[in-house]
Design a protein around this nucleic acid. Structure first.
Lengths: 186, 186
DNA sequence: GCAAATATACTTACTAATAAGTAAAATTCA
DNA sequence: TGAATTTTACTTATTAGTAAGTATATTTGC
């Protein structure tokens, strides 16, 4: 795959995660890369196309991580820990996550982008629910709510706390993210 | 206060909460109201001005609600329940909350709007922390995490679950929001 | 091996639409 | 009347998107 294409995807993702989908333009990308905006259109004919590709790339990245964790024999605790680490890293880099960035703009997104975002959330939620379920069975996790609600609470908590932390620094993010795990301890 | 001004504020807030700050225009408001875009500029010279006013209105609304709950003698449980109800209502109306809508666009907002949004989050977080703290002391609530983290978890959970629920309907929102309270039961 | 054809990776130079914002005139209302 | 409100008629800037052209590789046919 082309290096230019890859760089556009990377820059586009960063722009979405720092300014939001409707606040970034092809000019932002082209200027940063020292190319013309038509060159960006060469790789991604429309902005919707670029947006969809960015979400697709993220789904792939997540699925590769899960596969990787399985092949490394990670247990449920270690898997959840690794997932939380993605958010700790995002916080450190002052970036929101893709779901939190695109979520509020959902109604303005192209149909294809909406479908991919929906798919992404679905994949993450399914994985998280399954991890919590089997972790509970093995007595690695303990919680009283139903698994779906617990999964949504954890995921939502990570997504929005990233946004809130980007605005007010109330609690240390590391402390907060650690409390998620502590709270699941049997 | 002018009825036109009030209607602009209301419409603006709805637009932010359904499309996001950077996706709505003065045209959206003026067309909907059957006036010209210059008339909107008469009340709110700039978009930043309108955005700031919308956040300020929301702060006021929240503070009035808290005052009202105090004068009605609501205990900590009832207060938290009332706060959660705001989110259940938003979900029913298919709207995100202001914090969740403006959060991802924070870096693109005007300085004054940023300040107000920061203030709003601060007020909500302080109130929530205090409710949890005194509720715990009275044995109305029980939780093991530190109060700040718990407050952030609850607030973040409400904010982002609204966004996620607007995209995928995994869990019934009522069930989810109920689990927040159930989880705090001693 | 080499010329012709074609694909790749762009640039130049636009267009059409929409954005925020403004100055001045017209209207409404008290 | 005079102040508040709203329209008319703009400007300026930016946006996504496109048509046409170019240099450089790469492939294909002979």
């Amino acid at each position: 795959m082309s290096i230019t294409r890859e760089k556009i995807l990377e820059l586009g993702e960063n722009l979405i995660r720092t300014k939001g989908y409707n606040a970034f333009s092809y000019q932002d990308i082209s200027t940063e890369m020292g190319i013309k905006n038509a060159a960006v259109h060469y790789y991604f004919p429309t902005k919707a196309n670029l947006g969809t590709s960015i979400v697709k790339t993220n789904i792939q990245r997540f699925e590769e991580m899960v596969e990787n964790m399985h092949s490394l024999g990670f247990d449920e605790w270690k898997q959840l820990e690794a997932f939380i680490k993605i958010y700790v890293k995002s916080r450190r880099e002052n970036k929101k996550c893709l779901v939190g960035s695109l979520g509020p703009a959902y109604n303005t997104l192209d149909g294809a982008t909406q479908t991919e975002l929906k798919k992404m959330i679905d994949i993450i939620m399914k994985w998280l629910t399954q991890i919590l379920e089997s972790g509970k069975a093995k007595n690695i996790f303990a919680f009283k709510e139903d698994t779906q609600s617990k999964a949504l609470a954890i995921f939502s908590g990570l997504v929005a706390s990233l946004q809130i932390h980007g605005i007010v620094e109330k609690v240390d993010y590391k402390t907060y993210s650690q409390s998620i795990l502590d709270n699941l301890r049997p």
